[in-house]
Design a protein around this nucleic acid. Sequence first.
DNA 1: CCCCATTTTGTCAACGTTTACCGATTCTCG
DNA 2: CGAGAATCGGTAAACGTTGACAAAATGGGG
Lengths: 308, 308
Amino acid sequence: MRKRVKEAAAQLDYHPNLAAQSLIARRSFLIGLTYERPSPSYVVELQNGALGRLEDGRYRLVVLPFNHVASRPEELGRLLLRAGLDGVLLAPPACDQPELLDVLERQKLPYARVTPHRELARGIVVTMDEVAAGHAVATHLLSLGHRRIGIILGDPSHAASLGRMEGYRRAFAEAGGAIDDRLIVTGDFTYDVGYRVARTLLAHSPRPTAILAQNDDMAVAAIAAARDLGLSVPGDLSVAGFDNSEVSRTAWPQLTTVNQPVREMAWDAANRLIAALDGESNSAAPSRHDHAHELLVRASTAPPPPMD
Amino acid sequence: MRKRVKEAAAQLDYHPNLAAQSLIARRSFLIGLTYERPSPSYVVELQNGALGRLEDGRYRLVVLPFNHVASRPEELGRLLLRAGLDGVLLAPPACDQPELLDVLERQKLPYARVTPHRELARGIVVTMDEVAAGHAVATHLLSLGHRRIGIILGDPSHAASLGRMEGYRRAFAEAGGAIDDRLIVTGDFTYDVGYRVARTLLAHSPRPTAILAQNDDMAVAAIAAARDLGLSVPGDLSVAGFDNSEVSRTAWPQLTTVNQPVREMAWDAANRLIAALDGESNSAAPSRHDHAHELLVRASTAPPPPMD
DNA sequence: CCCCATTTTGTCAACGTTTACCGATTCTCG
DNA sequence: CGAGAATCGGTAAACGTTGACAAAATGGGG
């Protein structure tokens, strides 16, 4: 029966032609992943999470990085539509472009959004409570006794920045204090810019006793800036990051940070997207799922120096 | 004439069905990229290099990570064949598996190999002279005056390890010395294992005055190990890495390392692969192209402490 | 105004599957 | 042994393009 043809097929190593299958099944079994050049570790986590879900081999992952989405969302839309995908995974900041979502919906290309921050009712949403996470790190520093805390923001076009900042603000309010606006500087999530703005923070007098960076790369840059000024971390300056990326563990001292379960979220997003694709209703019903953050207290934070 | 249909197509936003095109063109316009979970920065560089070449949009990149290739090359072969690719980019260690190359050739799936170390006459080869690169770093340390140099090898199944080691050996020979075999330890390119073996190296008496690590992650781990023992880098111990990965710049002190032009090599590999695919002769003629390494002397290496 | 060259329009086969259907064969069970 | 069910073999349409070819229409030059 079918065993015989199976083994004959195996012997001739025959593989069905995917193009023909796609043609008749009216889908390509390709899932796209778009992101915008953030830190390598973030990309890899995202990718690995999605790939983990795809490893049965039915679907394949196509990577489609795209820079400057904010300024030309419809161009990314065209790129995605031309790629012949069955569905697409959207990371920040692409997942926060309403115009892009409009295009995708008009063309009926299902999508899942990882950690969006706006229009949370549209499409499949997998996210994390950024406000709570920001609140957690800030509270940690405040409870250690820090009061003069410098803040390094990420790129303001990534809406994540705003949520985290809101969390900081609430934590300060609860501790009966307020954020000193002069101690807020803006980076762009990269090491180089992080280093530069950390130097300006540390030039303030009196010097902040702690720095809250909105990702690990900038936190590591802040540590380097402190060292170059002869300061020790965490003796003279505490530094906390965000993301639990690879660098946060390879840094010295290891970084206190917040684990953003990127891998799990990407897995979940891929899972829901595939469920929508395989389900009868090819209309991906809006749904939302929150993942928990986790504060990781490591060696880069300690009480402020005694003279303070 | 055709202008009219073009604009009508644009207005209806009609996009030709890729599956049907693939079916008739007998190719899928998909290029695969296989790698085995090395450091995120390596993966991203590789990927970005390949994507840089693919950005005209004709071809799309499918990522297919696969672990433990060495023990089951034919399984990866099946995975690649089933993915319906036009061609595949092979990173170490997959590019060094003769069985895998056999399978691909038998099934006429063109491939390009990035930094292979064996069977250099097969397929499209884009590589770097590992021996010369290893020689360069080792010579740098020797000329600073170091003689007791610890060596942290990478995973021995990655043939890169051997080439770099051979370069070290030659440099020592030229300096009129020899490598002390007791100061050679084996890691696997990861931070965690790197940290452990660095500790055993530093427990030797007399302690080495420098450490040559075969990649940056392990070098950074060695710096952390030294710090945890109260040693300063580069005052008490010089450390050199390999790869010029992201961490080498975010480390403190910044790492002396060797730039492996991964991105350029990946671009080149994708370029040659596409040329072979588009060319009439679909037999990818064996060819080889070498890229130059570059020694980057940064802050983690200095002359040995005076008492030595 | 007619002929030849060029352009336009129309028809059809092919790519490699899948799905449906019909008729023929085999199997199962009373 | 026979009726009904299950399996098997074969044929055909469909998926959305491309490429070849023929037929028809248009244009320009003598």
